[in-house]
């Protein structure tokens, strides 16, 4: 009967029409992953940094449970070396969408003696925040931490799973990862272990920008060009901040810059660029010849800097 009706239909829909664009397919994949997390884990949390990638994941999580609310809290590991614009953005977002935003401070971990602060001109709280993060995961009894990491960011991340297992010390064992096939994700774990889950693993920097534009999502202002006092050190353009110690001979200069990635002020490099809206950024990204993490001093410490940090429990 059904076949008969179809053949009478005035316009037959061609199978060719059941195609999705790459952004729609990536979105659908991410929503699927986020729903799996809510279904498989008792206590998930979304790690939120205020950067464009975690903003994208937050937006996808809203979509995944619409018209319901996101059934888990957000958590920010605050190094207190952040760009003030990122903190303002974070607080606004929590207010606007009525989300539970947990903030854990690296300063507290330092004050309580859990970690020792790095010193010296290139000091960063990059390693220190691992302790704060793992303590917060343990304290909150979180079993899954959603994050915005992407495989195209860095070579060690290219091997990362969507559901990435962490042992009870929070460590990643890259050589012993669970195989992931089809759309079947194994989130089984013992007490004390947890998972990191990366719904936008398959997105590139370009995909994220295109998506932010398509969805008209607000992002922190420092992604767009503005004037800022900076110095150049080892090829990285660093912003003036209370946390930066000038070396002899260095002095600040006011330049037009923007950020392609958001980390701590102490180690995130700016780029000289004129991008005032998403279109400008998309155009720049498609022409650019340096990866977005190319401006991150923390990745330049050694060839396997990211892998080493990830094994310890980094994002």
């Amino acid at each position: 009967m059904e076949l008969f009706e179809n053949s009478l239909a005035p316009k037959k829909v061609s199978m060719d029409n059941y195609n999705m664009t790459h952004l729609d397919e990536l979105e659908s994949e991410a929503i699927y992953i986020i729903r799996e997390v809510a279904a498989q884990f008792e206590r998930p949390v979304l790690l939120f940094s205020g950067g464009k990638d975690s903003i994208t994941v937050f937006h996808l999580a809203r979509k995944a449970f619409w018209p319901g609310k996101i059934p888990f809290p957000l958590m920010h590991i605050d190094t207190e070396h952040n760009f003030p614009e990122a903190i303002i953005y974070r607080d606004n977002l929590a207010r606007q969408f009525g989300v539970n935003m947990i903030v854990k401070s690296v300063q507290d971990s330092i004050d309580s003696g859990r970690v020792t602060e790095e010193t010296g001109v290139n000091a960063s709280r990059n390693f220190a925040q691992i302790t704060t993060l793992l303590d917060a995961v343990e304290e909150g009894k979180f079993t899954a931490c959603l994050g915005g990491a992407r495989r195209d960011e860095e070579k060690a991340r290219a091997k990362e799973r969507f559901f990435s297992h962490r042992d009870d010390f929070g460590q990643w064992d890259p050589k012993n990862q669970r195989p992931e096939l089809w759309n079947l994700f194994n989130g089984r774990h013992r007490i004390g272990e947890h998972f990191r889950v990366f719904p936008i693993s398959n997105w590139t920097e370009m995909d994220v920008w295109q998506y932010l534009k398509k969805e008209n999502i607000e992002i922190p202002s420092i992604y767009f060009t503005h004037e800022r006092e900076v110095i150049e050190r080892d090829g990285v353009i660093l912003s003036k901040s209370p946390f930066l110690t000038l070396k002899p001979g260095e002095s600040y200069q006011t330049r037009k810059v923007r950020y392609r990635t958001l980390g701590d002020m102490t180690c995130t490099g700016a780029v000289y660029s004129e991008c005032y809206d998403f279109d400008d950024i998309i155009e720049e990204v498609s022409a650019t010849r340096v990866t977005e993490r190319g401006g991150r001093a923390d990745d330049k410490r050694s060839e396997t800097a990211m892998e080493d940090r990830k094994k310890e429990g980094y994002f």
Partner: peptide, 13 residues
């Protein structure tokens, strides 16, 4: 291990 790589042309990712 399996490594995932990405590239795109104007037609496809």
């Amino acid at each position: 291990d399996v490594a995932y790589r990405y590239f795109s042309t104007p037609k496809r990712k």
